[in-house]
Amino acid sequence: MNLSLEGKTVLVTGGSRGIGRAIALMLADNGADVAITFRSSVDAADEVKKLIEEKGQRAKAIQADAVNFDSAQEVITEITEDWEKLDVLVNNAGITRDNLILRMSEEQWDQVIDTNLKSIFNYSKAVAKPMMRNRGGSIINISSVVGISGNAGQSNYAASKAGLIGFTKSYAKELASRNIRANVVAPGYITTEMTDELDEKVLESIKEETPLGRAGDADEVASTVLFLASDLSEYITGETIRVDGGMAM
């Protein structure tokens, strides 16, 4: 047993930027062929594809809206036809539309639930049959500490991130007999484009609430995903691992 993903194929949704990008590159560094999906950032996605190929791995960058059920099916079909199988799925695509509940619009609620939660159903369902045929697989769903602790101004985001934890545990129970594992990684405050939007005061208070006293790096999330993707974690399923500097303990 080791950390190597040699011979494995991976899909990372929302893999062109932020945490998804770091995950895609780290899994490729460890020997996986990596496909990413992206919604709008064509240039960023092309760059990730190029970087993966430079590491000597096969790569794909597929434009797809994670909310669309049929599109998820098409993405999985394309990968399993071209690469014969899919060993690892990382459901990372996500957005925020922050607002206090008193001010939150129905649209802000729906957009976040659809993108962050329905997408998990879409892709996890689409990979179930190919992974059954392949006699195994590993699914890693990216949540957030906000899904564990809640956060004022992020009720929609927190609901989606808590929801996916329940989904993952159910999925893990349904498919465990077929050697398909499903786990959650819940990052805390990680510096990405998404957190760049937060104002200075909020950032300071986040650091104060973090026992390790600093923000995390996207690579620190990616390394946990790598562990769950690899055979080193083969007896772990239905688990949620926080990568949050101790924030939510």
Binding site: K129, M132, R133, E174, L175, S177, R178
Partner: peptide, 11 residues
């Protein structure tokens, strides 16, 4: 057959 067996049978 369990429920997954029937799915596999269909596959």
């Amino acid at each position: 057959a369990d429920s997954l067996d029937t799915v596999e049978l269909i596959m």
